[in-house]
Simulated scan of single mutants.
Amino acid sequence: MTTNKPTADGFRMPAEWTPHERTWMAWPSPNPTFTNERELAEAREAWGAVARAVRSYEPVTLVVSPGDADSARAIVGEDVQLVERELDDAWMRDIGPTFVTNEAGELAAVDWTFNGWGAQEWARWDHDEKIARHVSDLAGTRTYSTRLVNEGGAIHVDGEGTVLLTDTVQLGEGRNPGWTRQEVEAEIHAHLGTTKAIWLPYGLAGDYGTYGTQGHVDIVAAFARPGVVMVHTQPDPAHPDHERCKTIAAILRASTDARGRQLEVVEVPAPTVLEEDGEWVDYSYINHYLCNGGVVLCAFDDPRDEEAAEIFRGLFPERTVTLVDARTIFAGGGGIHCITQQQPKV
């Protein structure tokens, strides 16, 4: 571990669309997110489908709890690398490191403080708070630690100095009580190499439920390229996200990035389903993952799946779009982006 900040050593976080060395994932193991064996089995099938889809584009390393390698291998196949480390949950975007690079061709890792998405009652994180360090050690990188409580799903960068953040995450009482907006921005910038933060007031309504993250940005907005940001929209006024998304889109349209560009906003309509088991869903196509030459896109067996795929084909014409059913992942509190973490190529 180094006592410097990453930016002092020339590091910054590249955009997700830059080439990857590999993708890191974590294998679901028994925990409060999966209340019975059936739910755990369904989760493993869903995580496995994502791992296989990503592996078709780039190498995948899957972290599994000791004793779970056989169950993982049976589902993900022989092409996915397995490493054993103790786990609590399976959201690698949040428990894993955020990788940064510099112009000298070096790779490093940022180890945010992880506390179970704001010390939520159901969460356990004795093992998960150590996963970022384990992954950075396995990748052979130096590690920069910070006392800022943050997760990989709570940030999105354009690779040119701009980062998206959310008031209810970085400034939430469960994560960083006593921190000012300026202090959070300074710590974020020092670790990501960004210079401008665009703050959204909240995430999607469904993300404040039992297993929600309290407003992760990667389910509501994501850069497609510098100057262009995709935003989740809810066309149905019956859903609470209808007004939320209008507000978020308006904020983004009124924003400029670190280079002074007025943001172009591309609206991506939500699936048609509004509720599941009596609760508002936060199903979102924004929670996709960019691989080398591909887009792994959430699907919901919904009439809008293909409409979303066409939007992504237009935004990423050089990439192949692969749809993977994400309903089981969303039932656990996230999507495809939430269970993957890119290691950039240097």
Rank of each mutant, 00 (worst) to 15 (best):
G278F: 11
E310H: 12
A270E: 08
V50W: 04
E84Y: 02
F316K: 07
P344D: 09
R304T: 14
N31K: 03
E21S: 15
N150R: 03
S71A: 15
V228M: 04
A43S: 13
V135A: 12
R44P: 04
E185N: 12
S65F: 01
K246Q: 15
G174E: 07
D301K: 14
V83F: 00
N36Y: 02
A49Y: 02
Q214R: 10
D128Q: 11
P59D: 11
T210M: 06
L62T: 08
G159E: 11
N31Y: 01
V220P: 00
I329V: 15
V321R: 11
G67F: 06
R93E: 06
A326Y: 00
H337C: 13
A224Y: 07
I339T: 10
V231G: 04
P30A: 15
L315Y: 03
G77F: 07
E183Y: 01
E187C: 06
H216F: 12
S65L: 00
D128T: 11
W280R: 09
P303K: 09
E78L: 09
V76M: 07
T340E: 03
S56Q: 14
W122D: 08
D111K: 15
R244M: 05
L164C: 06
E310W: 01
A205V: 13
D70M: 09
D167S: 12
A222N: 08
I311V: 15
F11G: 07
N292S: 09
N31L: 02
I219A: 12
R327P: 10
Y211F: 15
D207S: 11
G193A: 08
L274A: 08
N150W: 00
P32I: 03
T168M: 04
P201R: 09
E183L: 04
M1A: 14
N31H: 13
E318D: 15
V83E: 11
I198L: 15
A109N: 11
T141E: 07
Q262E: 14
R22I: 03
V100K: 04
P28G: 10
D70C: 01
P59Y: 10
A250N: 13
W125T: 02
V217G: 06
V163H: 04
G212A: 10
M13C: 13
E42G: 00
W125S: 03
T113D: 08
S284N: 08
N4R: 15
A186G: 01
E129Y: 00
L297Q: 06
V80N: 06
T101Q: 10
K246L: 15
D70R: 12
